[in-house]
Design a protein around this nucleic acid. Structure first.
Lengths: 325, 325
DNA sequence: AAAAATATATCAACCGTTTAACATCCAGAT
DNA sequence: ATCTGGATGTTAAACGGTTGATATATTTTT
């Protein structure tokens, strides 16, 4: 790999001059500028960002910690985050925590060693105190930390309310919410709050089913839903806390020969791409994934520039009515 | 951020000694080792990997260029690649090319500037000559380059053959292959070769439909499939070159009130997670995504260690029969 | 008591780049 | 003839770490 020295020698100038060309500082005549650029071209020279980052104390690297990029929600979110980051000159270091506390910690340390400029944290199993130790611009997804760490979320309570009301409006008499584990202190838990409160207010029978703390496993979803129908054969409405769960619910309904939406109505959450691709198309609560990703990056960049940021950043959700209700 | 100097001072030793502790070189007594570790703990010291990488000429960074991580196939692939890379001490820099030539080039240059140790390239729109310019360990997905760049692929011809034969065995008389654009010189094109040859051999009417060169857009898939049925109302078998395309085909069949699998049989490709999650579950050709990801990383690591690697690395595919055939 | 091994220190070079300070040269304006 | 400012050079320090050479203790072995 050619260095700035090679370029300088070949162009017959000093490294200072080359550096000046590279960084547009000081006086440089058009002639030398052209000559230097030409040599860089010839040598296929690329400035070493490690060296630059070391000197500048800024790496332009962002750590992204998610449960796994193979989950479509996080896949889509990551794509948007990376796209926006790239447009702003930042690179994404991808970390799949698999929702394991130890991995989260390990990744955070690794990111610090690599001098990332900030961390986007969308996987939350570590203890709250760990967050304050990070000591780096950080933005959180869907989780409020006691300390003043900014977070991005969508309006989970409103989403839960929209979903529950839709089921009831459509005539459901006995409904269930299948959600992630409520012991994880996530803002998504507000969906269940809304579900419970709305069902109570409107005097409808309701049940809550939680998944295990583990990872996303469709087998588990299917088992839970099957058990649910066994216990409550008259269940006629399911509010699934992700579109993937909704797809599992659809599958089980077909197995049990329950017609959708006539006998059972199902509403999902997220509105990932496949929600409108599968048959029947899934009615769902749309999270503004692109906006959330962009906002997270914006907040991170502001923090890096020592600008003030709001701690709470909640975006609105919308109901996407399709074929399962 | 504390530096090695801070640690040395606080521990009352020199940086050389700290560095020795850090790197396990030379003589170090247990006492000083402990003391140094304790101080590192107290200061929450993390060695600066930029500085280390700069000196060592090795960053432990790998560039991963894919069309987009929001596509489930690449999402799953990326998760496996990152997981295996992490276990080997490598970090992944995520690059979504959106299948744009300019972005691919830009990303490659960026990765070189950041001194990545190697590149996994799963997006191929740049010209073949560009690959030789890279001058870095590289491994390619599903694309053979004239130069001796190693590639990982699954047995596309066999996959196409399995799929086509299944449709015919099940009684299809008029079949179509919906595939990506054949002008992109991808090994996936062998699926179409196999499709055509098998259909001819067995004397079955067949058609090939290509998508535009663009990105993956379900709207486009749906339009193509709708047109296909308009032109060939008696079509009774579809070989879709991805599970997402198969899902689109299912959707259109429902719209046209064609029963699956009685009137139309559909087989997908990839066996991404959602293939077995949707209803009906998609019959598909399973690519060994995890093995392919791992193999790609292994080949890259071997190249980085100057070991010899095979250019051609083709893994077997298997038929997953489910509900759409 | 001498030799060998262990433990640590000091010093300096190096990785590739940036940047500040200062010097030099030249062309044009005064 | 002098001044001004543009264009470049020289030099050296800095970023944070690694490493080799060399020196100097202290222990341990012979």
């Amino acid at each position: 790999m050619p260095t700035i020295k090679d370029v300088a020698e070949k162009a017959g100038v000093t490294v200072t001059t080359v550096s000046r060309v590279l960084n547009n500082r000081g006086y440089i005549s058009e002639a030398t500028r052209k000559k230097v650029y030409k040599v860089m071209e010839e040598l296929n020279y690329q400035p070493n960002e490690l060296a630059r980052s070391l000197y500048r104390g800024k790496s332009n690297l962002i750590g992204l910690i998610i449960p796994t990029v193979s989950h479509p929600f996080f896949g889509e979110l990551s794509a948007y985050i990376e796209g926006y980051a790239h447009s702003k000159g930042y690179k994404i270091l991808l970390c799949n925590s698999q929702l394991e506390r130890e991995k989260e910690k390990e990744y955070i340390e690794m990111l610090k060693r690599h001098q990332v400029d900030g961390i986007i944290m969308a996987s939350h199993t570590i203890e709250v105190e760990e967050y304050s130790k990070v000591n780096l611009p950080i933005v959180t997804f869907d989780r409020r930390i006691k300390e003043k760490i900014p977070y991005v979320s969508s309006d989970n309570y409103q989403g839960g309310k929209l979903a529950t009301n839709l089921l009831i409006d459509k005539g459901c008499k006995e409904i269930a919410h299948i959600c992630g584990n409520l012991n994880l202190d996530l803002l998504a838990n507000k969906r269940n709050e809304a579900f419970v409160e709305t069902a109570q207010e409107r005097g409808i029978k309701y049940y809550t089913v939680q998944t295990e703390i583990n990872v996303f496993e469709t087998d588990q979803y299917e088992r839970l839903i099957l058990d649910l129908f066994n216990e409550h054969p008259n269940l006629d409405g399911i509010f699934a806390s992700s579109d993937l769960m909704a797809a599992s619910a659809i599958k089980i309904c077909y197995q049990l020969k329950k017609e959708i939406p006539d006998e059972v109505r199902i509403i999902g959450y997220d509105d990932i791409n496949i929600a409108s691709l599968v048959t029947p198309q899934i009615t769902t609560i749309k999270q503004p994934i692109e906006k959330m990703g962009k906002l997270a990056m914006e907040i991170l960049i502001k923090q890096m520039n020592k600008e003030k940021v709001a701690v709470e950043n909640i975006l609105p959700v919308t109901l996407q009515e399709r074929e399962t209700t």
